[in-house]
Design a binder for these strands. Structure first.
Lengths: 251, 251
DNA sequence: TGTCAATAAAATTACGATATTTTTATCGAT
DNA sequence: ATCGATAAAAATATCGTAATTTTATTGACA
């Protein structure tokens, strides 16, 4: 028992450490900035004033700019020559776009993964699913409101589960694109979380996908994944719409 | 006649100017470097020594590093913390991967484009096709060896044609990914060009795709595009294999 | 109200200083 | 003598700061 707690604590520490890990200042800044953008701490669409960031993050201009460049590559930051940097804005249109493209990429990657997956893949998927189930807490899990920490943990494990599922597709490019799009989608989930009303039986969907994948039923797994992503889309879209309505009310 | 020559010359100048255009030193360096990588002037897999590049391109260290960052985002340059930058290597495995993912993305984008395309789209496709046909020069065009300049022109117009085809898909993300993957594929085409033996009736394939797209036959256009990309893959793979065989002979 | 010059703000770039990695040289053991 | 480990040296990447260039803002004037 004590052993279990220790492992959990280590895992948590590890996860938190990864927020700003890296060997160079630029990479650490990259991780911090990415976290702050994905979490919504930095307002979507807002100007990133370099001088302010230098002070806020206690960092030099050079590593800061080196950190912003790859964020622009991830489409989390927009940049215009000699006009600076902005946090990439969120919009219903882009959420729509990302959801569709993500479905295209993730179902293809999953299909290939189910075709090619070996025992190691199955084990990785089982492990990731077990960890995710733990935090989703049973068949009707996460119905009740949960803490920010739990949500963080859920995001990590949901990410790990989706990553494990496609990990055997043997296509570095599909994996790279899947990762990119997952991250984009995460932004939308995170900022819309506070506006979500009522939770859906997301765990049941994960169970179904897991069983179809392990059962090597590619067609079914892909169909379920597509539905899963579309349900996510619906929920986030609703929340985002309410959010924007509220904002325009205030104005 | 003189008029025609003038137009051609202007076009050429314009195209050459775009190689290293941009308002900041960093962007100009980005364009030059990208060109040199895609064209193969910079050896795939080779180390990019910053000091050497500073001298070769007559540029400061800061803009050079700013130029390298987005190239890493495009996956044309690999980087490791504290260890520097390399030209991304080429491999048969990655060519395979890129070709498959490109097919996935480009057929989906084309399908949507055919669904959504309006008159403006049709016009853009017709124009791009006309320009491409001009340089491919008729039904059995480009059978005879052609100059480097002509190949450059062909690359530009082939790119423009593929871009026009998917331009109405109304998915910025699909377009971005298509662009990324086209560029990757172009690298392989370019470096393998010198090793290509015998040309195929590529123009016929373009004609068929063009007609299916304009005829709004999405299914057929996608199938033809898939075949087109796979033929390209076969040719480039053959050339690359010969190239690598020759290299290992020399060693 | 619109334009233009002056000023302020901000981004880009140069350059020197520091830290890390890689290579070379040295030493000792087998 | 050769190999492996260790230490010095060189090469290279990273970072901070300041100078330069460009863009945005302000306010006077038409």
């Amino acid at each position: 028992m004590i052993f279990e707690i220790d492992q959990t604590m280590l895992l948590r520490m590890n996860e938190e450490a990864t927020i700003a890990s890296g060997r160079t200042l630029a990479r650490r800044a990259y991780h911090r900035l990415r976290h702050d953008i994905v979490s919504g701490a930095l307002q979507p669409g807002s100007k990133l004033k370099l001088e302010s960031l230098v002070q806020q993050y206690s960092i030099g201009m050079s590593p800061l700019r080196e950190a912003l460049a790859p964020l622009a590559g991830d489409q989390l930051v927009k940049t215009e020559d000699q006009r600076g940097f902005w946090v990439a804005p969120l919009s219903l249109e882009e959420l729509d776009d990302i959801s569709r493209v993500r479905t295209l990429v993730e179902t293809e990657a999953l299909r290939l993964s189910i075709e090619n997956g070996d025992d190691g893949w199955e084990r990785a998927v089982r492990d990731a699913f077990a960890e995710l189930s733990q935090v989703e807490g049973g068949p009707s899990g996460m119905q009740q409101p949960v803490s920010q920490d739990t949500l963080r943990l859920w995001e990590d494990r949901n990410h790990a589960f989706h990553t494990a599922l496609v990990s055997a597709c043997q296509s570095p490019w599909l994996i790279r694109l899947q990762e990119l799009l997952y991250q984009q989608a995460e932004r939308y989930r995170r900022v819309s979380l506070n506006y979500s009303q009522g939770r859906r039986f997301i765990h049941d969907e994960h169970v179904a996908i897991f069983e179809a994948a392990i059962g090597r039923n590619a067609l079914r797994a892909c169909r379920l994944t597509e539905e899963h992503l579309m349900h996510t889309y619906d929920v986030v879209r609703g929340a985002l719409a309410r959010m924007q309505a509220e904002k325009s009310d205030a104005a």
